[in-house]
């Protein structure tokens, strides 16, 4: 009897579990897995996104490595991602330390710093475009940096960093609050104050948050899209064309559907490799607590 009862309870639980799981799984497969696999398939074709197409094997992949525009977009995206990731993490950590210290209006300030996170990237992009196009030139008397092929990327970095700091700071605040106060007190007596305190105590003890933030921010930055749409449209002279933007622009608007599918596959593999490598490397720096 007892066995029957438990197995009945068990199957009830299984049913609930499946009822929750199946709809999500169906949606995920329909809108994620199937497009992914279709995209993978199209990467071996010369499809324009409409009309007939032929299977051309690895030709797209071979062409990818010879296409200057694709090459430039990779260079630009990685430069942007590396610079932004470092800036975001350094600034967020400084902010988080400030917001974790004994200051007035701490909760209010923490709330304020989270606002960029809840604004849409496009909105923020347009606001900053206005700022760079009209306000900054009016004050400095120079041309808008967004109009310069050499400097436009800096404008994008500013926006990316400003917006990404919100979430990153919150994760750092959480990390900082997990360091036990008594460790700092022992440190204060042992002589770990100021920079030594950060270097020998705070930094190693928040390594897990650093790993998380580095990987998350790097991934987000590599996939930069909305800000490009809002601010430069990839210009001037394709100088701010990110990989995602190129895939979208040329794949959907310029009849390179098959080719850009191959680009997307390559990009996907690259992001996976970067994330795994980062996690591996940073984990090795994390302390076994």
């Amino acid at each position: 009897m007892a066995n029957l009862a438990t197995s009945k309870a068990g199957s009830d639980r299984n049913r609930t579990f499946l009822m929750i799981l199946i709809p999500v799984l169906v949606l995920f497969v329909a809108f994620n897995t199937i497009p992914l696999l279709t995209g993978f398939f199209y990467s071996f074709t010369n499809s324009k996104g409409y009309g007939p197409f032929e299977i051309i094997g690895l030709q797209n992949y071979i062409d990818l490595f010879q296409d200057a525009r694709v090459g430039n977009s990779y260079l630009f995206t990685f430069k942007l991602a590396v610079v932004s990731t470092i800036l975001v993490n350094v600034l967020s950590l400084i902010l988080a330390i400030g917001l974790s210290s004994k200051i007035k209006f701490k909760s209010a300030l923490r709330g304020l710093y989270f606002v960029p996170r809840i604004l849409g990237a496009l909105v923020v992009g347009y606001v900053f475009t206005y700022f760079f196009t009209y306000i900054v030139p009016a004050v400095t008397g120079t041309d808008s940096i967004l109009a310069s092929a050499d400097w436009a990327w800096i404008g994008i970095v500013v926006v990316l960093v400003w917006q990404a700091c919100a979430q990153t700071t919150i994760i750092y605040i959480t990390g900082l609050s997990s360091v036990p106060e008594d460790v700092y007190e022992a440190g204060a007596l042992d002589g770990a104050t100021g920079w030594d305190k950060f270097r020998y105590l705070t930094f190693p003890l928040i390594m897990p948050s650093i790993t998380t933030n580095m990987v998350l921010v790097m991934k987000d930055m590599l996939m930069v899209f909305d800000q490009i749409v809002a601010m430069t449209g990839g210009g001037p002279a394709n100088s701010t064309e990110s990989i995602s933007y190129l895939i979208y622009e040329n794949g959907l608007n310029n009849s390179q559907f098959g080719f850009q599918c191959a680009n997307a596959v390559l990009f996907f593999i690259l992001i996976a490799v970067v994330s795994i490598a980062q996690t591996k490397f940073l984990n090795s720096k994390e302390e076994q607590l």
Partner: peptide, 18 residues
């Protein structure tokens, strides 16, 4: 604290975990 030349043993030990 560091300039008082004092050492303290805490109830929680407060060892550096890393």
């Amino acid at each position: 604290p560091k300039d008082r030349d004092i050492a303290m043993v805490f109830q929680t030990y407060a060892l550096y975990p890393h």
